[in-house]
Design a binder for these strands. Sequence first.
DNA 1: ATGAAAGCGCTAACAC
DNA 2: GTGTTAGCGCTTTCAT
Lengths: 351, 351
Amino acid sequence: MATLRDIAAELGLAVSTVSRALSGQANVEAATRARVLAAAERLRYRPNALARALRRNQTQTVGLVIPDILNDFYASAAAVLQRVLEQQGYRTVLALNNDNPETDAKCLAGLLEQHVDGIVHVPCTKDGARVVRDATHQIPVIEMNRRSSNGEFDAVLSDEREGSRILTQHLLQLGHRRIAMIVGPEMYSTTRDRVDGFNDAFREERVSRDDSSVFFGTYSRTWGKTAMEQVMRRTPRPTAVYASSSQLVLGAMAYFAAAGMHVPADCSVVGLGNPDWYQITHPPLTTYAIPLREMGMIAAQLLLARITELRSDVVVPTVTRLSGHLIIRASAAQPPSVSAMPIPEDIDVNT
Amino acid sequence: MATLRDIAAELGLAVSTVSRALSGQANVEAATRARVLAAAERLRYRPNALARALRRNQTQTVGLVIPDILNDFYASAAAVLQRVLEQQGYRTVLALNNDNPETDAKCLAGLLEQHVDGIVHVPCTKDGARVVRDATHQIPVIEMNRRSSNGEFDAVLSDEREGSRILTQHLLQLGHRRIAMIVGPEMYSTTRDRVDGFNDAFREERVSRDDSSVFFGTYSRTWGKTAMEQVMRRTPRPTAVYASSSQLVLGAMAYFAAAGMHVPADCSVVGLGNPDWYQITHPPLTTYAIPLREMGMIAAQLLLARITELRSDVVVPTVTRLSGHLIIRASAAQPPSVSAMPIPEDIDVNT
DNA sequence: ATGAAAGCGCTAACAC
DNA sequence: GTGTTAGCGCTTTCAT
C-alpha cells in the first residue's frame, strides 16, 4: 500500500506537504499540488481511513443497531438512513440485535470500540443504550421506532398510538363490536402505544371494550397464526382482527387461507405498516402506513446534527413523532349480522 | 477514554505489560494480570479497535456489498452472513450499490480505504470487483449470487439455470405451450442463467419454444406489471407466466388483481425465490426456492478461510453452486382448453 | 516477568 | 509555501 511517505519520498517533499496537497488545504503551491496529485495517481495512493481516524479522533462512521434486517419495518428505515449518511460522507455499520438484550449490549460495545461517531438505535430494553452514556467517550445516540424509558436520548418515532386509534376507529365505525388485537411483548413502547390507541378508539367511539381483547405474544408469524387460533375459538367470535405488525399479518392470513375462511366475509382484518406485498394479499389489506423512510431520513439528519454540534453545553433530548396515514383497501368490511360458521380444528398453516 | 497508558500509569507498569496482560498473553505474572484487569475495569477501559487495526494491519471487519437491503433475496443472505462472521469475531459493514456501477465502485473503494479484511460482493458489472484486484493491497473477494465475467474471484451461487429449467418443465408438463417469462437485464449472469434454464426445459421436453417469449426489463415491480400488460396483449395469449423474481411476482400479481383475473384459472403463475409472503398470495405461489441462507453461510465461511489462509501461493478461484428446490403450491394448474377471456384496458395497479 | 523503544499512516501545530 | 516535530493508542521486537 502506497502511503504519504512514499509520495513524499518520490517527490522529495515532506509528508505534511503531501498531506496538505491531497486534502485540498491552502498553503500549497499549485505546481506542487499537481505533482503530488500525479504521483498519488501513479502510485495508486489510497488514504488509510484508520490512520486518519486515529489521528483526527473521528471515524466518519455511524452505527445502526436494529433488531432484524429481514423485517421491512427496519430495512426501509435502514436503507434511507444509509443513503443519507453516505451522501454526507459517513459510513454506516450495521449491527443486528435480534431484540436480544445481550446481543444488543454486545452490538453497542462493539460500535464503541470501533469509535463510531454516533449511533442510531432501536432499543429492546428499558435502559436502551445506557452503555453508551456510561462510556467515558460520549457519542450521540438517536433512538428510532421504539423508545427506551430512560429519556436521555433523542428519539424519532411514529405515532403508533394515533395510527392504532384510527385503525380501530375504522373498524368500530364499520360496525364491529368484537375486535381482537394481536400484538407482541408488552415491554416495547410500541406495543404499549398500539394498545393505548386501541383503547382510545373505544373510548372515543363510546363503545364498550368488554367484548374485545388483546392477545400479547411476540411479533412473529408463528404468534400471528397461534393467536388467530385462539381468537377464533372465542365465543362469541370476534368479527375483526387487528394484526399489529406485518409478521402477525402473515400468520393471520395464513391461518385464514388454511382454514378456508374468507376475508373480509368471515372476518375483517387490518394490519399495521405497509410492505409492498400488502397490496396483493387477498383481499388487499387495509392498514395504517408508517412513514419509515421519513423516520430513517430524520434520524440520519438528527444524528448528523448532533455529531457536528458543539459538544459544549448539555443538549436537551428531542422527540420527533411522525404521523402515518390510513390506507383503506379491501380487507375490512361491515360485520355480518349473524356469524354461525363453524371453526375448523387442527389447522396446519405451514404449507 | 481510558487508554493502556492510563492503566500503566495508575499501576506503575509499562504499557507493554498492560497490553500483554489484557490480551491474555504469556509472560505476565498472575498477580500483575489481576491488578491490570481490576484497573481496566475500574477505569472503564475499552480497547481502541482503530489503533489496534492500524498496528496489526487487520481490522477484523469485512465488507458486504449488495444491491438492495429491502430485497429478501439479499437480506436473507446478509442476515446469515452477518451472524456467522460476528461469531468469528468479525464485524460486517454493509454497503449498498443499487446495482449501479458507479455506486458499486465507490462502495468498493470505501471498503478498501477502511481496510476491511475481505469483501463479499454481488457484482453488477462485467468486471466485478476489479478495483480490488488492482489495488496494491490485496484482499479476498467472494462473489455472491451473481458472477462477474472476469473469473478471478471465488463465487457462491445458486443453480438458477437448473431451477429455471425445473420450473419451466413443471409448466410444460402441466400442458402449457405458450409461456411468458419475465426477467430483468440480460447483463446479469443470473438473468442469462434463468433464460438458459427456460430454454433447456423446452429442449428437454421437446416442445417448440416459438410460441413462448422472454420479456427483458428490470427486476422491479413496475416492470412486472408492465410486462404483464404486454404479455396479455399477445395473441394467442400465453397460458402461464414465469415471473423470475419476487419484485416481478409482486407486479404480476397486482396486475391480475387489478384486471380481475384469477390465478391459475385465467393464467398460471410461477415465481422464483421464496419470501414469506409467497405463502399467502392468492393462491399461494408455486416457486423454486433458492437456498439464500446457505449461500450467506458458505460465503462467510469461504471468506473467513481466504482471510486466514496463507497469502503464500496463488489460490485458484472456487465456484460453489447450490441447488434449491421446487415448491408446488397452487398458482400453476393445467391450462384451459380454450381461453377467450377479453383483456381489460388501462389497468391501474397502483392501488 | 517486565520495560524501553520503535512505528503503523496520518494530521496539525509550529517553525522557518 | 514547505519542513520539522509530535503524537493518536496500540503491538511487538529486543533488552534487561
